[in-house]
């Protein structure tokens, strides 16, 4: 069994209104933060015989459902439970 930790983020060239709103909030608190981007973190457990197999399965899940390439990119790690 493997655990995958997946980050799905808005493409760098796209306006992220959610990130902008949070950036303003941080500024109001006195934080000098910039380039705030908000994405999704997805964790899941997956049955696989070895790590390469787990990576291939998570890759497929990301491509088919978890991210939309028109607006997002993803990165992930897998580790054995």
């Amino acid at each position: 069994m493997f655990i995958a930790e997946i980050n799905v983020m808005p493409l760098k060239e796209l306006l992220d209104p959610q990130g902008k709103a949070v950036e303003h909030g941080l500024a109001n608190l006195g934080f000098n933060a910039s380039k705030v981007r908000i994405g999704k973190r997805i964790t899941l457990e997956i049955e696989a015989s070895e790590e390469t197999d787990a990576i291939a399965k998570v890759e497929e899940a990301c491509k088919k459902l978890l991210h939309n390439p028109v607006m997002e990119y993803y990165e992930f790690t897998v580790s054995k439970v």
């Binding site: 796209l14 306006l15 209104p17 959610q18 902008k20 709103a21 939309n68 028109v70 607006m71």
Partner: peptide
């Protein structure tokens, strides 16, 4: 083709 993103005014 394409996608619908969150409105720019949030």
């Amino acid at each position: 083709p394409g996608a619908l993103l969150r409105n720019n005014n949030r």
